[in-house]
Amino acid sequence: MQTEKLIDWLAEDLAVKPPKARTHILIWLPVAALVTGIMFLGLVGIRTDLTSTGAMPTLVKTGLGLVIAVSAVRCARTLLRPEASIDQGLVAIFAVLLPLFLLVALDLASWGQNGFFMRLLGKSILSCLTVIPLLAAIPLVTSLWILRAGAPSHPAVTGALAGLASGGLAIMAYGLYCTEDSTSFVAVWYSLAAIIVALGGSLAGHRWLRW
């Protein structure tokens, strides 16, 4: 086919507006998060001492989830542009690492080294590492679906960021249920759960975000 003809063809198609992933993600990801929230309430429910002893720790967990989700979404939106450099995606990682170190430091500062490993290991690693990825599934599928309209030069990294964002949202919900209040536990296992989702997102991105 002559390139001239292709140009005519493309021009005829100009009226069909392509979807804008950068905008749609900001609309639909919160919707997916809402659905996940409802699913969470049905699945595990909120801890009973939320308003008393659980108030502060829960706030920390929600905050961590929010930081992860917001920075990952920001970087993923940047990487949807083909000319974006991959460094801009790595900014998200640093934005998340800093609060993690702060959380461990906070734990050590308030409770000391005694019993650090007990607090670190807690009693609910398995539940943390399974429920968070489970809750992240709907936001992850939703965001990958939307991101398909983008043009990332690095599909796997973009997918990983979608996973990180979904993991962050899942953490916000799971934090309302989990009674493990050591900030070291939260820093290590919550972030590992988010990394698991990010790995899943990376594999899916490598497959689905190519264009």
Partner: peptide, 14 residues
């Protein structure tokens, strides 16, 4: 070249 032009077209919103 044509495949790229098609991509330019389909991804112009980015």
């Amino acid at each position: 070249v044509q495949e790229t032009m098609l991509a330019v077209h389909l991804k112009r919103a980015t």
